[in-house]
Design a protein around this nucleic acid. Structure first.
Lengths: 226, 226, 226, 226
DNA sequence: CAATAATCGAGACGGTACGTCACGTCTTCTT
DNA sequence: AAGAAGACGTGACGTACCGTCTCGATTATTG
């Protein structure tokens, strides 16, 4: 089977022993990943060619195929190992602010050169399950985990209903962004993000009971932004 | 330029006069569009081949290229001319019901064989603007127009705020469906649709003023479902 | 079967009656033959296309195919109907002069724009028996017939042996010209023609018996050149 | 530029060093050349297809195009590398015999399956200068060189005039053969060859001076036939 | 230090689909 | 019935990448 370059297709193996033979060239690996990303954001997926990746990386085609079984795996790996943009959640003390700030960052990334790559991955992923899985595991889930924490804080603060379904809520917040990003039927602006947050979070707030204002119960000071 | 087969690449033109020469074969056109859809839903986009489309349609490759400049245009046209699924909006008298019924239908379509085609279009569309535009114009927009009407009725009935942004609201309702459909990180069930509706529409309801229940003001009987 | 345009695919038939329907367009026929020759001498055979013949003649492709079954027949017909160059034999009274003058003319034709056409016909004829036959019947044989007469005169005059094989002699005279024309290994000059004539005719002269000089017996004055 | 497979498109280059990369497959090269000849002699040029050459040779089409830029180059190369038929000149001591024996062999080759190939080359060569040049360089010239030697011997023996133009003489001998071969207006028989030889060589013999019979001066014994 | 072994670059290999072109036939309306 | 126009099915063209392979050269560990 093909070695995943992250799991250690090179260097010492579990035994602490290096296998015989010439070790894998780290330089080649990086050059390949770099040219993969560059090519992807220049040309999109439809003109993405392993032949050109190899040429730009000044690497033999076989070296690419030795370590990545197909385009999808290569792109997924390149994307996963790319400098993941700063998409962490702040802790402002208000769920609206926490969410909208992070979502604005996401929109900014989607609008920049990295967006081209994400769009290529999601596009090509429609006919390559591995690719879309890589996106979920390496991009979506890590952020989801952070988001869960953020939501939990808001529940504790009483900003959200205790019985809110976090996945439903997060899909409701991010789904519209992905939809506009992929279908491009409308603009992806910070204002859109704010109004989206306001709309969706409004539906997730506790039923107001007289005398118990949710916002008042703020148990602890916010952490500084990450 | 290539004639769009919908805009009348065949038959009489505006002058009521037929152009000279052998007229375009309607039979070939239909066979091509049919085999395009079939092939797409069998094999997905990555193995979609004009060569095989032509062969299955018992048509020369050149005939395909004569009328569609590339894969994207062909797929877009085939999709547009396909028996568009019954995705109309009911008029039950309640916005929650109207929306969730239509959205359940959409989910059902996405889960069926047609879903494969939609996914192929949105996927390939990420590197083919024409294709994604075709999806917007021929699939999304017609449904949006119906949706506006449905929303307007709800506003009139007092179920939704007068100042609600219909595009924001619709993206909030449909975005999560598209997201789950494309990223496949979670299941697309009718229950999900219902809870999604409930969550989002809750945020779009008028602020409750004491003594004026919105629901009471129901001015007219609902039309039977379409 | 296809009508040969020479044998009267148009006009009155044997009965003196015109067939019903629109008569064949003489204008189209000529335009086709003209553009055939022109195209052939511009581009050679390998890029000769019926499609372009029809276009240049402002004629439907089907009109070409209606009257000529294939490229070969068209080219052969065009060549046959072309203004055949003046390649007649003079009657100077001396066989050497008669032959070399005619052969010089032939070389001149081969070197000019018509040569391109002849070369195309002989070239394409190698894989199209009809074409090479057309060349024989319409070009070679008529000239051969004239040549026989010329040779006979020379025999009568005593310039050639009585038992000379005319076909052998003529092939010996013309073969080298065709060879240089087709293989292009050496130049086709008037001097070459003269020396060729001298060499070959020398071998066909009667054995000199002392006292009987062939040249002396000149029975009649030469006809003026044709 | 395309490497000529003869000049060394494979194997070590002048430096004694092999170029980097996988070396050219000798097996593929030979298979291609073989199927080229076979196809040519089966179908003639007009149905000669690179697609079928590749298929019969069990080779990718691209491999053919990698080494030969077009049909002409491929055919020329295949012809040149083909087992050149035994067409050497004997040394019988008499020029008539030397020539007629070799010319009979040539006629035999032209009449056999190889003739089909020669005719295809000369035919296609009319619209492909490279092809006709290949014929000249690889077929005609080598034989011409041998012929010069044969003629020189005859001159030394006094069978031919000292001032005879060898090219003129050889064209006069071979031209008629090529003409009958290409135009097919008459049969190519051994008898024709003999009478042709007799006719042409008669014109190249020295002027008979009384008392000095050319034939008598035979300086050396003939070499056995090659 | 030599032998062994896996990697590297380069690039040729057998394939497949591409998009184009001309073939020879057909179907329409016009003359 | 023949004309121009032009679409039709067919099949070869020459190109681009696919993923595999075979080279010599390189770079490590092992004996």
């Amino acid at each position: 089977m093909h070695q995943n370059s992250v799991a250690g297709g090179h260097g010492r193996n579990g035994n602490g022993k290096r296998p015989p033979g010439r070790p894998r060239s780290e330089h080649a690996r990086l050059a390949i990943l770099r040219s993969t990303l560059k090519l992807l954001q220049e040309n999109g997926f439809s003109e993405f060619t392993i032949e050109e990746v190899a040429e730009r990386a000044a690497v033999g085609k076989a070296t690419v195929y030795r370590w990545w079984p197909n385009k999808g795996a290569l792109i997924a790996d390149a994307f996963a190992n790319s400098a993941t943009p700063n998409l962490h959640f702040p802790d402002t003390g208000w769920i609206d602010k926490d969410m909208s700030q992070q979502m604005r960052q996401l929109v900014r990334v989607f609008s920049g050169p990295q967006g081209r790559i994400v769009s290529a991955i999601l596009g090509a992923g429609q006919s390559d399950p591995e690719l879309i899985e890589a996106f979920r595991e390496r991009f979506l889930k890590p952020r989801r985990r952070e988001a869960y924490t953020t939501l939990r804080r808001a529940i504790v603060r009483g900003e959200l209903r205790r019985d809110v379904d976090p996945d439903l809520l997060l899909d409701s917040l991010y789904g519209p962004i992905y939809m506009r990003f992929l279908i491009r039927h409308d603009r992806l602006t910070p204002e859109f993000v704010d109004r989206l947050c306001a709309l969706v979070l409004a539906g997730a707030r506790p039923r107001h009971k007289s005398g118990s204002r949710a916002r008042r119960a703020r148990p602890r000071p916010p952490k500084p932004r990450h």
